[in-house]
Design a protein around this nucleic acid. Structure first.
Lengths: 213, 213
DNA sequence: TGTACATCAGTGAACGCGCGTTCACTGATGTAC
DNA sequence: TGTACATCAGTGAACGCGCGTTCACTGATGTAC
């Protein structure tokens, strides 16, 4: 097989790349991982994909469009990870909720490139509504989980779900961005980020009247 | 005129700038504000300061060194703002604590350029220990405040101050970075970020047994 | 107080480089008949 | 099944540009005597 292209060291490919779009995104992720969202260029991504500098223009209007696509996919992956962790609230909302928090931190830790493209690349959300929409879907998972937890409270003591979801998001995001991220901007702390988050959520839920497990 | 060149509208300067270092930092802040931490270059900062492209090298080893100085100053300013807000815990720790939270968000809102240089520029903290030290000082204010609040609890119910301080930091930081920041990456929410934070802190403190004001 | 000198903080020209972008082009693939 | 053609997804050369960095230099400032 010979007119199918391959890509590793020493391999060959034909005139057509086959899935250059994917390859560019993968290259962008690598570059962001190495040097931060600032340190990747269109030309370098093309080079990494083994393609001429003009080729990327077939797939992305410009560098920002590629970055936005990376961010969008990051949110998709993120949503999947959160959904899987929440697992419909099984076996019980409280346990699933902790898994959800751990998944948030795990994503920041394992996918720092996605994480910074999504949250710290300076992309204007209004310029890329798809990115924003995908981010909203991720938030939807958190909100759903909060609603499930809230439903276990007596009706007269239920907090507004939106507020609670924003609180949990902020808390998780703060810990992720400061202490759990998998790149050199992580600030070391003398404990596991997961434990820190779990303790905070425990205290917060106690404060809401969801204490006593 | 003649051997004086001008700087801003109508001003003049001699061969020596006088305080180029400061001017470069100010220029960097402007550029970061406009285009994010990625979008500022050494050359452009020099141009903005009205100076030849070689001049900055008298003051900074390279672009990153300038960025690190900006971050360090950001933390200094931040520490000042937090200290002022806390005001030694007057008139009472609870009220001062709320002011402290508001000051965190206020900083992110009013100084987005500092904020992103400090937290999102991808500077390696281990390469710039001064930045890290200055960040630790800012955290110290939060920790001091937490200790004062904790002191109002009965001895057998006091949480570890470090944990509490990290929780409050994360929560404030999450809200700041997602919803309160003063640049185009802010995500709109249907409430004031300050109220969101205040409510979260209230619930958290309730959970700690600091409820009932 | 004056002068000589050292040092500091700029200049401006030059360089190599890589980026973003365009262009006319061409090889490969898909499809209509 | 074969052939003609349209379309797609690349090439590669070229361009202007701004960046980072260096260099020998020079104007301004501070200081010793």
């Amino acid at each position: 097989m010979t007119w199918h292209k391959d890509r590793g060291p020493g391999e060959r490919r034909g005139y057509h790349h086959g899935n250059l779009r994917e390859a560019l995104i993968a290259a962008a992720l690598d570059l962001i991982r190495e040097k931060g969202p600032a340190g990747f260029t269109f030309a370098e991504a093309a080079r990494a994909a083994g393609v001429s500098p003009a080729a990327p223009y077939r797939h992305f209007r410009d560098r920002d469009a590629l970055l936005a696509d990376v961010a969008k996919r990051g949110f998709e992956t993120f949503t999947q990870a959160l959904t899987r962790a929440w697992d419909g609230g099984r076996p019980n909302p409280r346990e699933a909720f902790n898994r959800l928090g751990a998944a948030y931190l795990g994503f920041a830790s394992k996918e720092p490139a996605y994480f910074s493209a999504m949250f710290e690349s300076g992309l204007s959300l209004s310029d890329y509504p798809e990115v924003r929409a995908e981010g909203d879907r991720a938030f939807g998972v958190l909100r759903e989980a909060c609603e499930a937890l809230i439903a276990t409270l007596p009706k007269d003591r239920r907090p507004p779900p939106l507020m609670m979801a924003l609180h949990i998001w902020s808390l998780s995001h703060g810990i992720a961005a400061l202490f759990a991220r998998g790149d050199r901007a992580r600030r070391p702390i003398p404990m596991q980020a997961e434990e820190l988050l779990e303790a905070a959520v425990l205290i917060y839920l106690d404060g809401l009247g969801l204490g006593g497990r």
